[in-house]
Design a protein around this nucleic acid. Structure first.
Lengths: 248, 248
DNA sequence: CGTCCCCTTGAATAAGCTCAATTAATGTGG
DNA sequence: CCACATTAATTGAGCTTATTCAAGGGGACG
């Protein structure tokens, strides 16, 4: 079994983000940490949660990055969402009992494991905590909706730029981005799968962003040179990330 | 105030759909109906829930159709999801306290109103019911993800076809579609906003679907001539609608 | 050192968009 | 009930954006 320290550490990112949006007592924080049954490491490119398989535990991303994706029969892949440390990546399965998409690691990752049984106990005993967990799944849904807007109505350059804008904000929340610099462990192929473009075209868009001195992306390292202009190109408005506190 | 009959009637669609996915006792069904404070009518093209406004009540679609949408500064619109009777359209606001998108009626609609205060009481007292409501927001999220896949990776013809396939299934669940015929109160412009295409191109895709004897869409009336072929063109797989019962 | 990705770039192609004009359907006021 | 306005549907032509195809270069790793 794992120690209380490991449990606490595994939930700091999640708690930090929940506290941006709502008040979370230290007791509640303790309860959250107490849900963690185990913390496990996985390599990069591992299929962490396969689609359409009965699930009885949730996984929370402690360290590293993961993505959700879906494939078409034609072999085409679409990345649905990127996840950063502190994201309760597979909270959904508690309610859905299976996922209709896959979750895979982009880097070596550390995941906290929370059995559905504990989720049930805790959410039944702590309704406010339950709502905050519910919130975190709805935040994912809001991100999904923004991506629909991207895919449906944004130009190629805006789509690519938008991904960088979103990830910047989300990484800053957990202290993994400062000065517009962060690590995004994606290949241009992954970026194509996330933006609904071809790798070739992503390459050209990245070149344009670089030539226009907005952003450089090389070998997974992102440097945002001109955040304001980048956000304008991306038509990025962070409302959808619900960064403000819930009114009580 | 409204009568118990009106309350019961206003939740039959929702209950019917929840019962496809999970067991719902008649007591729980009664509790759900009891949450409804009011049932109100709205005309077509009404902005039912504006984005970024503090909310203190949820709305459930009883009759008619509504959509969620978002606009870009350029005036481009993207429809994010369509809703059919029995959808708890704005359950999200209970947790989010505001929406980051708009909800508007496509037809004259009847909406049941549930104050957040009642939502809070009921979800705290009935955890299983709370999970089923949570489920219904996660089902919306799964639909959102499928739409990301559509926008990102499906061809124009498949995107248009996919919308018709999805709506068919969802309307059948509430008895509003039989024999592949149903009413979809959208203009071709709306369909363009839902599929991320231009109205002109939607028109051509509809023509192709008609010429190929897969589907006819005229004046809001949908006739699916060849469901199997249509679903193949759409690459439609209904897994993402979670039509099976949750295992206990 | 060779293999395997990934990145990069050019050239040709195709999917979908824009512009424009016509027709059809719907609604309104007289 | 008709004339007129308005919105939606339809179609053609030309154009733009992004894709496909192809080839070469660079770096990591066994």
């Amino acid at each position: 079994m794992i120690s209380d320290d490991v449990r606490d550490e595994s939930t700091t990112g999640l708690i930090r983000k929940l506290r941006v949006r709502d008040s979370l007592s230290s007791e509640e924080a303790g309860v959250l940490a107490g849900m963690v049954a185990d913390v496990r490491n996985f390599p990069a490119d591992a299929l962490l949660v396969p689609s359409n398989v009965p699930l009885d535990q949730c996984v929370l991303l402690v360290d590293g990055m993961v993505c959700r994706y879906k494939d078409l029969d034609t072999g085409q892949r679409q990345i649905l969402e990127l996840h950063v440390p502190g994201d309760f990546v597979d909270l959904h399965s508690f309610v859905l009992k299976r996922l209709e998409h896959n979750i895979a690691s982009l880097t070596p990752v550390r995941m906290a494991i929370v059995p559905h049984a504990r989720m049930k106990e805790v959410t039944e005993r702590h309704p406010h905590l339950a709502r905050m967990l519910w919130f975190s799944t709805l935040l994912d849904a809001a991100i999904n909706r923004e991506w629909i807007l991207s895919m449906g109505r944004r130009s190629a350059i805006a789509r690519v730029a938008h991904i960088f804008c979103e990830v910047r904000v989300r990484l800053e929340l957990v202290g993994l981005c400062a000065d517009g610099r962060y690590t995004l462990p994606l290949t241009q192929i992954d970026l194509a799968d996330a933006s609904g473009l071809t790798p070739v075209h992503v390459n050209r868009m990245l070149r344009k962003l670089r030539d226009d001195r907005l952003l450089t992306f090389r070998g997974g390292d992102v440097i945002i040179h001109d955040r304001e202009k980048l956000e304008r190109v991306a038509e990025f408005k962070p409302d959808y990330l619900f960064l403000e506190r819930r009114p009580r």
